[in-house]
């Protein structure tokens, strides 16, 4: 589902965020990308949606070689890759329903489908009763659920989550992880960057550890590990 080969990303000024990442993620996997700040986790995530261009190496996402993907095809790639962020990125002047509906409307989905799918997905993430609330009326965990609903409402093949629990307390984080696990069980590949030890240790999934832009560990059913003392 995701495949990279000798992936290098060098920023202007010579900072190497990624230095030769070769990784293979199968369909349906749940992968934690861990490592200290500045280890290249976020850069790696951005390369998967072609938000950034690599300086060297290859990336394949959902069977497509991103380096040869023309710019106008990028939106269609992103419809197959849902994204969740630490800061939720919800629109404050839209309700919960509208925030999720927006993601379908702007890719031209018919109104009937939007009316049917949005309540369904919000029910799935446990916000069935809060369709008409505005983001600032919700707790952080609820806001993140809305953002996950928005990323997943179009049933993408891959869900990318960059520190989704970074702003949440441990109890709320557990709820978010349960949700991501549920989404993963529907066959969706989930890639999650985090530096939350407790979460990684409790989930026992594949762990890819980055340090200075290189993979220092790739372990199935891993824990956060020694690098995290």
């Amino acid at each position: 589902m995701i495949k990279t080969k000798d992936l290098v990303k060098e920023f202007k000024g010579g900072v190497k965020a990624l230095d030769g990442i070769t990784l293979d993620i199968e369909k349906g996997e749940f992968v934690f990308v861990v490592g200290p700040s500045g280890s290249g986790k976020s850069t790696f995530m951005k390369l998967l949606t072609k938000e950034e261009e690599p300086t060297g190496g290859e990336v394949f996402v959902a069977g497509k070689d991103l380096s040869s993907l023309p710019r106008w095809r990028v939106p269609y790639l992103r419809r197959n890759v849902g994204c969740v962020f630490q800061d939720f990125k919800l629109l404050p002047n839209k309700t919960v329903f509208e925030n999720v509906a927006f993601a379908l409307e702007v890719i031209g989905r018919p109104k009937a489908l939007v009316q049917r799918q949005v309540p369904q997905i919000l029910e799935l993430v446990g916000l069935g009763g809060k369709l008409d609330r505005f983001p600032d009326e919700l707790s952080g965990g609820e806001q993140q659920r809305v953002s996950i609903a928005r990323a997943f409402v179009n049933r993408p093949l891959i869900l990318i989550a960059d520190e989704p629990t970074g702003n949440l307390d441990p109890t709320t984080s557990v709820g978010i992880m349960r949700l991501l696990d549920r989404i993963n069980r529907t066959g969706t590949t989930v890639v999650m960057a985090t530096h939350d030890h407790a979460i990684v240790d409790s989930m026992r999934r594949r762990v890819v550890e980055l340090e200075s832009g290189q993979i220092v560990r790739d372990q199935s059913r891993g824990i956060y590990g020694v690098g995290a003392r």
């Binding site: 949606t49 992103r78 419809r79 197959n80 993601a103 990323a151």
Partner: peptide, 17 residues
């Protein structure tokens, strides 16, 4: 700008934006 960035994120085409 926020709406535009989310539109890009969820795969709205350039012309749609």
């Amino acid at each position: 700008r926020e709406e535009i960035s989310i539109m890009k994120l969820v795969g709205a085409t350039n012309w749609f934006i």
